[in-house]
């Protein structure tokens, strides 16, 4: 293994919790660094995160640059940028990956502009060409096309979409180095965080995962089953109009012509027949999975995967499988 930093990963954290996308980036970054025969590094900014920085090593980092300072506790884009730019100028990685979360997409362009380097947005795939240049694949035109992008400058920066790369499994025996960095404290960044509140309310139109139910549901209590599947997948609950009209669930959950238009990565429809009005709201989903008892239901023609069967028989084992997959219960 070489000694220089080939790939640098920004370790996004909020409330001291590292975002899952970081582990995915470490998974991909590990592969790229190995192919480049260089080190995989991560940069973590925050306060009181010594413990957490180990996790980054367990998930594949060779070295973690830790900026541990009260002024970095919360995300201040100017203070973060300032310290990261200094680091990048020192360690000169070939590749710098940042999660395409809202935080990442606010921070990365500032860093790129400060470094005067290219930045590719919201990548869904990364590869190396024969010369070791980064090949970046990203959707554009609102997801209708894919573009392959190369960067002429160094570092080659990219933000990478969540749930696109595979993390390595956590290995507490993996070793690495934690480098405590001197934080340059900016007294006045021009930004003051007055408050931070947990975002409330469902936002179907931006959800990545929607688990929806229709009139195949027999009683409002059964929505708990749907909720449980949604929670296990980190998704939100959607519904067809009859459930909303019956008052089983709030209107903000309705998908369709007179409800929300959604475009998740996966839409799972339990007991929904697929009326044109419902399809209007979800037909642009990446993957549609339908569970319906009736083989003649029209949603089946609009699905990527379908199950002809009773949702009440499918959901309980599905919940068990999901729990197992997530290592709970």
């Amino acid at each position: 293994m070489g000694s220089e930093c080939g790939v640098l990963v920004f370790a996004e954290q909020e409330n001291g919790e590292i975002h899952n996308v970081v582990y995915e980036l470490l998974g991909k970054g590990r592969e790229l660094a190995n192919r480049l025969n260089k080190m995989l590094c991560a940069v973590l900014l925050g306060f009181g995160l010594e413990e957490k920085s180990r996790e980054l090593i367990y998930y594949g980092a060779d070295r973690v640059y830790l900026f541990d300072h009260p002024s970095l506790k919360n995300f201040d884009v100017i203070r973060y940028k300032h310290n990261i730019v200094k680091l990048v100028n020192e360690v000169k990685p070939d590749i710098f990956l940042i999660g395409a979360t809202r935080m990442g997409r606010s921070l990365a362009p500032r860093i790129a502009a400060a470094l005067r380097t290219g930045l590719t947005a919201d990548c869904v795939d990364l590869d190396l060409d024969d010369e070791g240049n980064l090949v970046q694949i990203r959707p554009a035109f609102s997801g209708n096309i894919m573009a392959q992008i190369r960067t002429r400058t160094r570092p080659q920066m990219a933000t990478v979409r969540y749930r696109m790369m595979k993390p390595l499994s956590r290995n507490p025996n993996r070793t690495g180095e934690i480098v405590r960095m001197e934080t340059e404290f900016l007294e006045n960044s021009g930004i003051e965080i007055l408050d931070r509140v947990s975002a409330s309310g469902v936002n179907l139109s931006e959800a990545d995962i929607i688990v929806a139910a229709g009139r195949g549901l027999k009683s409002p209590e059964d929505l708990k089953l749907i909720e449980e599947v949604a929670n296990l997948l980190g998704g939100v609950v959607g519904a067809s109009r009859p459930l909303v009209d019956a008052g089983w669930i709030g209107r903000e959950h309705q998908v369709g012509f007179s409800g929300n238009t959604v475009k998740p990565k996966v839409y799972i429809a339990f007991g929904i027949s697929g009326s044109p009005q419902h399809l209007f709201g979800m037909r642009d989903s990446d993957i549609i999975i339908a569970v319906n008892k009736d083989p003649s239901a029209s949603i089946i023609n609009f699905s990527d995967y379908y199950v002809i069967g009773d949702l009440y028989e499918i959901i309980p084992p599905l919940i068990r499988e999901l729990k197992r997959a997530r290592g709970v219960g």
Binding site: R215, S273, S275, K293, D294, P295, S296, A297
Partner: peptide, 13 residues
């Protein structure tokens, strides 16, 4: 067979 539906559940709508 698939296109003749007799079960009331499926006819509801």
């Amino acid at each position: 067979e698939r296109w003749v539906i007799t079960q009331r559940d499926f006819i509801e709508s």
